[in-house]
Amino acid sequence: MAQPGETQATDIAFPAGSARRMLASALSWFYLAAVYAFIFLPVAVLVLFSFQDGRLPVPPFNGFSLQWYESVFADRKLMAALANSLMVAVASSFVSCLLGFLAAYALARYRLPASALQRGLLIAPMTVSYLIIALGLLAVLNALQVPLSLWTVGIGHVVINLPLCFAIIYASMGDHHVNIERAARDLGASDVKVMALVTAPMLMPSIMAAFFLSITFSWDEFIIAFLLSRFDVTLPVEIWSMLRSGLNPKTNAIGSLVFLASVVVLVVLELALFGRSRKP
């Protein structure tokens, strides 16, 4: 029952002397500010010196210039890596979501033998370091003499994102959906139609959440992309090779752009996806 009183939890009349309370409050805000400063310091420095008019992204700040952004956009290899990253992220996330959804549907709606074991197996890659997953795949690919490419990177990214997608979608398949599916079946829909026309749309918020989360994971993933690619590389790998040249405002510029893009995606997601699902 929604009593007006229940929303007012902070109204508790505590006896603490107001001086002590104010001190505690001031300390809280100071702590908050300090940790925020720590969290934002490197990002602020990164963005600021991406506009550096000079060759070194460290103080003093010589003046405002967009030259490093120009050189980022003029860098063919960097732009190719960006495209590769997008391609691998979208494709591997799509496959992860599809396989994850199908598996979640089967395990949540049908009685299959050893389903706990199957769930465990599907989740297992989450508990293993990416480095180990990459090494194992690399060893097998080498043994089978499969050449490394964006395809192999994509395979690796599905391995790490499939457990994530499966877990998110499986968790959202509540029992309260069962009767809606039964009703659809009762009205003559086949199993596959029920899945495509009823279950998938009902679960769309969590499927989309899983999809975008995997995109960000794949987009930012380094070690698998590094070990399993050869000539065509993804953006983190390309940035990595740029780091060899040491401190360079161009790295700042590409880093700031990635940050900006992520923030835009985040804001769009917040407004489009979570904003909607929060209102019942």
Binding site: Q3, P4, D11
Partner: peptide, 18 residues
């Protein structure tokens, strides 16, 4: 009925609301 103020009254007696 719900919203009649009975829980608010109880919370005031308990000291959770002023």
């Amino acid at each position: 009925p719900s919203g009649c103020g009975k829980t608010t009254l109880l919370s005031i007696l308990g000291g959770f609301l002023t």
